[in-house]
Design a protein around this nucleic acid. Structure first.
Lengths: 218, 218
DNA sequence: GGTGCTATTCGCCAAAGGTCGAAACTCGAC
DNA sequence: GTCGAGTTTCGACCTTTGGCGAATAGCACC
């Protein structure tokens, strides 16, 4: 029996995805998350899952950072990226970041089913009209993705909160730890990303955004 | 006699642009800058110039921030954006930010000449193959552009250095002022951008980048 | 059971960031 | 000339950030 993880913040679409998964894999066990944080908890508990359907636009980590991080932490977990973006550039960038497939949210159910089967068979899958003309990743973006992938789960959570412009105090409160702990994570993050202050950390994180740049803080 | 400003960090291309300008406007007075900083000095001294050719990718402010700022400070100065990007999306975004024209760096000289004449006649100009399918600017991006436009010249310089991840101390040294002065500018910038700390300032600035995100600091 | 290794946690102290009030300087208007 | 609005400048004071050392907890391996 297959274990499938679904991460999407839109409840209706999450249900639709779940139905598509069950249509593709009758009897599959489906677990869902509505935020990056919930997803991190989920994968920690189901590191041996067979497939992850991941929305690029979720509260807690917009863009490719979650993809890069989970790919790095669980290389054997195939990921199909689900997104509202219709541009093939977004799809190819997802593939370049290690996704096994890409499904635009406008895709019909039978396409989703086909994508799931293909990826579980070890193949890659793109919508027919998006196949071809894939370009290589910007070296600096690839570098940052690799660095983000090397972060521990807690460090990754802190990174995302920094990328939202939060103070250490707020991060500490949200995570339920002391400010000193957050600072220790900060130091580790800066070391791993190869930068020397929090502003540069935020800028590095903004590199893995989908849009021209992430939504402004505040 | 026409006054034309050229801002581009590539010396060879700067010269080529200058020749194109002189071909279009024999006898024109041309002033050049190789960085955003030099450009700011230039426009302060030639606020009544007739045209500005602006490269999007220059040391000191990558992306649309310089365009937005100068448009806000000198609304009557027409700007033609010059860029190595061939995507029509980049061109349309430049127009949406108030540019009067767009010239890809691959354009032949006679196209550049035509663009200069069109813009000086008060028309907009795009390369033929890029005309049409322009989309509106993301409201949040438009909002940030308006806020960046409201910054004073010195505040804008500080903003760009923050967006590079520099410390107040480094900014103060580069500008030749005390650290306290930089901090005062910081406070003003945060007020105008509607945010509350330096990380959010950097993230807001990264919104006006051309690429998925600006080149990483360091 | 021990033995490393790493993640996570934290307190302390120095450095950087941010607020407030205020002075000097520009520049156009009257 | 001088008045006033806005820009640039700065010092004093408090807050936030970041580095260091260290303790604890889980985990793989022997």
């Amino acid at each position: 029996m297959a274990d499938v993880l679904i991460a999407d913040d839109h409840p209706l679409f999450r249900d639709a995805l779940q139905r598509a998964v069950l249509a593709a894999l009758p009897g599959a066990q489906v677990y869902t998350a509505d935020s990056v944080d919930a997803l991190l908890v989920l994968v920690e508990g189901h590191a041996d899952a067979d497939l992850l359907l991941l929305d690029l636009h979720m509260p807690g980590a917009r863009g490719y950072s979650a993809l890069a991080h989970i790919r790095g932490q669980y290389p054997s977990l195939p990921i199909i990226v689900v997104s509202g973006h219709e541009e093939s550039q977004v799809a190819h960038r997802a593939i370049a970041h290690g996704a096994s497939g890409y499904i635009p949210k406008s895709a019909p159910v039978d396409q989703i089913v086909r994508a799931i089967h293909a990826v579980l068979d070890g193949d890659a899958w793109l919508p027919p009209q998006m196949i071809g003309n894939g370009s290589a990743l910007d070296p600096s973006e690839e570098d940052i993705a690799a660095r983000v992938a090397s972060l521990t789960p807690q460090q990754f959570r802190v990174l995302n909160m920094i990328a939202e412009g939060l103070l250490n105090k707020q991060i500490a409160y949200d995570l339920g730890v002391s400010e000193a702990t957050v600072k220790a994570h900060m130091t580790a993050i800066m070391r791993k990303l190869g930068v020397s202050n929090r502003t540069q950390v935020a800028l590095a994180a903004s590199h893995l955004a989908v849009e021209p740049a992430g939504t402004p803080p505040g």
